[in-house]
Amino acid sequence: MANRADDIIDRRRLRRKLTFWRLFGLLALIVAVGAFASWAMRDRMGTGIAHIAKVRIEGTITEDDELLKRLDRIRQDEQVKGVIVWINSPGGTTAGGEALYEAIRKLAAEKPVVAQVGTLAASAGYMIASAADQIVARQSSIVGSIGVLVQYPDVTGLMENVGVKLEGVKSSPLKAEPSPFSPTTEEERAMIRALVMDSYEWFIGLVGERRGMSRTEVLQVADGSIFTGRQALERRLVDALGGEEKAIEWLAGKGVNAELAVVEWKSTERQGLFSPLSLAGTLGALLGLDKLGADLAARTGADRMFLDGLLSVWQPAPGLGD
């Protein structure tokens, strides 16, 4: 009986030990996951230490709420001592460019901001760059294409060929015009031209103000032309030639410690680490399908297919706008 009682006591002690180690293991796992999540998100939410924030603006520009909120978080983060806005964009919607321009100007009112041009900063992409207090571009970067344009297709010939006729009743002649389903009248062209020229005047006024150029000087470079970084420097569209080190050099001149780490603030809009969408995205990335899809969209113009409003974008897909 004594041996049996001892066995029971030993089993209870063993269960208590197992319970302790299980709880300890679970706690260690939670801490490890938390540490990994903190490490994975360190360049998205800041580091908790003084640093230079870097934000990438790439591809076709539209009104991006997440990016606007990210810029505002950078503005409010006391650990951000300076900002590099890295740009590689052919432009996009004029309204999208305007929203980002205003967000960057608000940020620049509180922290030194420098724009670093990668391959391309054209049209609305240049509009965004001009919001910074310094623009750095590579010698071979493409800069410019200052202008606004609206394009729309005319499919009336195709409709005639297939025997389709569009009927409609509208309240006034200019309602829903211009339309791809009817030839454009001079009155309609005049309406669209007034729309385009009003935005163009706003655009060149913005460039003149930010670059310290007269209207005459701006008009000389605002005919839609594009320039290399070297040519843009001659025309005062950029301030210096170089890369990130040149951008940091300018920040240092504004009192920012050049030894601070440059931390990229990325989008926080992502699925949970182990969610089906996240796992599918990871698998696609491992197989290279994410790059394939992006490349296919760019080649076919699908990445700009649903842009609305006035466009400020260099080399648009046919029928979309510039």
Results as ranks from 00 to 15, higher is better:
A252V: 02
A252S: 08
A252M: 14
A252W: 05
A252T: 04
G253K: 04
K254D: 10
G255W: 11
G255C: 11
V256T: 01
N257I: 12
N257A: 06
N257M: 07
N257K: 12
A258S: 10
E259S: 10
L260H: 14
A261K: 12
A261Y: 06
A261N: 15
E264L: 12
E264A: 15
E264M: 11
W265Y: 14
W265L: 14
K266W: 02
S267V: 09
S267Q: 01
E269H: 03
E269G: 06
E269C: 02
R270E: 09
R270T: 00
R270F: 05
Q271L: 00
G272L: 14
G272C: 01
G272P: 03
L273S: 14
F274K: 07
F274S: 15
P276L: 01
L277N: 01
L277F: 03
S278A: 12
L279M: 13
A280W: 01
A280T: 09
G281Y: 01
G281D: 06
G281M: 03
T282R: 05
T282C: 00
T282N: 09
L283P: 04
L283G: 14
G284E: 00
A285I: 04
L287M: 11
G288Y: 07
G288D: 12
L289G: 03
L289C: 07
D290F: 10
K291W: 03
L292E: 13
L292R: 12
